[in-house]
């Protein structure tokens, strides 16, 4: 199944033009972001609205470092490390402070907002890092794409970015799946099932929550770097509240208790949003809201778990038919 999907995704560029590849790459990047949130929410049970903060941080750090004529691979690495460290510090204070789950969401949201406001306030000549002007509201244009290591002076073009984002998404997905099978991952699964029992067995859940938060921060940062590479642009909208809310929708639609669900949810909702936009429906947000409500009511666990339950029900029914005959 996974192999088939991989082959299918890798074949897309031979059939579709750059515009399609460009759109799909964006979905891959956003799906990474959704993955980072659902890993936290679905397994550790904490709803972080700060994943966009890590996303934006990753994008900005990559842009600033790369535009200061550092090679882009190093810039990408620094772009991932910064949000990871930031997650570690933020997570430490939030988790060791033993604040409630609701406050966790509220504070991570506040952190995102603060970062957004701070970036918006950086217009003018005073805000320059190295050679790069931060430009406040307007963002930083002309962010370089990744250099191709084996070709001098060449950078990834649209098809290259497509392959890169597809590969990264698949790797991160597989990596997270594998993480869940390790001793550390099994405790995370345990936390999802029953936090009190995990504690009673002697595990200090705070270490595991922090580990998951940092890992999720790294994935969100990586998504941010890729987003900057993809669009050759970073702006304060990276930290957007709108997006912070939309990720929740993608994850809920796909099913937060799985890792594949949020990827599917992102693809579906982003495609739908774009399509609604081109259809001249004025109220895209309204339509999205209605859709979310419908989803929560119809499929409590999300699309993917519901689909697989349906499939196994059909299989059971078919088996009983065969047995009856």
């Amino acid at each position: 199944m996974a192999i088939l999907t991989t082959v299918g995704l890798m074949a897309v560029p031979s059939f579709y033009d750059f515009a399609v590849q460009y759109d799909i790459s964006k979905i891959f990047v956003l799906a990474l972001l959704a993955l980072s949130m659902s890993f936290l929410w679905g397994y550790v049970g904490i709803l972080s609205l700060g994943q966009t903060a890590m996303f934006g941080l990753g994008g900005y750090v990559y842009a600033i470092v790369a535009m200061n004529s550092v090679d882009t691979a190093t810039a990408a690495l620094i772009g991932i490390v910064c949000p990871t460290l930031f997650s570690a510090v933020l997570g430490y204070f939030l988790i060791w402070g033993r604040i409630g789950d609701i406050y966790f969401s509220v504070i991570t949201l506040a952190v995102t907002l603060i970062l957004e406001k701070a970036i918006r306030a950086t217009s003018g000549d005073r805000f320059v890092i190295g050679k790069v002007r931060l430009n406040g509201q307007n963002g930083i244009p002309g962010v370089p794409s990744l250099e191709i290591p084996w070709e001098a002076k060449a950078t990834l073009f649209i098809d290259g970015v497509y392959y890169l984002t597809a590969a990264v998404l698949i790797l991160v997905y597989v990596g997270l799946r594998l993480t869940l099978t390790t001793g550390f991952g099994q405790v995370l699964v345990g936390l999802r099932e029953n936090r009190r029992r995990v504690e009673l067995l002697g595990y200090d859940s705070r270490h595991y929550c922090l580990g998951a938060f940092v890992l999720a921060g790294a994935v969100a940062g990586l998504a941010g770097v890729l987003f900057a590479v993809w669009g050759n642009f970073v702006g304060p909208s990276l930290f957007d509240l709108d997006r912070a809310a939309q990720i929740v929708i993608w994850v809920i639609v796909g099913g937060r208790m799985t890792l594949a669900g949020p990827i599917l949810g992102t693809a579906l909702v982003v495609t739908l949003t774009t399509w609604l936009g081109t259809q001249g429906v004025g109220q895209v947000t309204l339509a999205l809201g209605a859709m979310l409500t419908l989803f929560v009511l119809l499929f409590k666990k999300g699309l993917l778990p519901t689909l697989s339950e349906l499939l196994s029900a059909v299989a059971r029914w078919a088996a009983s038919r065969r047995a009856a005959r």
Binding site: Q186, V189, G190, R192, E193, N194, R196, R197, E199, L200, L201, G202, Y203, D204, S205
Partner: peptide, 28 residues
């Protein structure tokens, strides 16, 4: 002491309402 510290010191408890990992297998 926190629950996990007490667990570490060797007190084990079966609560009145079953406190297990329902979504995992018995072996897990």
């Amino acid at each position: 002491a926190a629950a996990h510290e007490i667990g570490r010191l060797g007190i084990g408890i079966k609560n009145q309402i079953p406190d297990v990992f329902d979504g995992l297998s018995v072996a897990e």
